[in-house]
């Protein structure tokens, strides 16, 4: 057991690019999802619900709950927990069902 406690714990991956969230840059590392990068940047919600306007962000993290829907590059209802972060993406808070129906 003692060998294990000496193993360096893996830190979060170093960010190598940024994308935009509501106009501000968010750092991201290769392989991270949009949700993870937002989370690492301290963002906890990126949409509001259509009935009560409540803030929502991540819930199940694996793409089944659809709570994490966000608008990316003008496309509504993208699951942030599945979408790989890409340099230059424009991610915007989705209000209700979003624009451009």
């Amino acid at each position: 057991m003692s060998g294990r406690s000496r193993r360096r714990r893996p830190g979060p991956p170093a960010p190598t690019f940024t994308f935009q969230f509501d106009g501000r840059p968010v750092p991201a590392a290769p392989g991270q999802t949009v949700a993870a990068a937002l989370w690492a940047a301290g963002v906890r919600s990126w949409r509001t619900t259509r009935v009560t306007g409540a803030p929502r962000g991540l819930f199940c993290g694996i793409g089944v709950c659809f709570d994490c829907l966000v608008t990316i590059d003008g496309t509504r209802n993208v699951r942030a927990c599945l979408a790989p972060a890409r340099a230059g993406m424009r991610v915007t808070t989705q209000v209700g069902v979003g624009d451009d129906v």
């Binding site: 979060p12 590392a29 949700a35 989370w39 409540a54 929502r56 991540l58 819930f59 927990c81």
Partner: peptide
């Protein structure tokens, strides 16, 4: 339970194992 920051254990795991981000 609908407050941001409340997630499932699977989400905490996915964030950490999949993206290296602690919840």
């Amino acid at each position: 339970w609908d407050l941001p920051g409340v997630v499932t254990p699977g989400a905490a795991q996915a964030l950490l194992k999949g993206s290296g981000v602690p919840v």
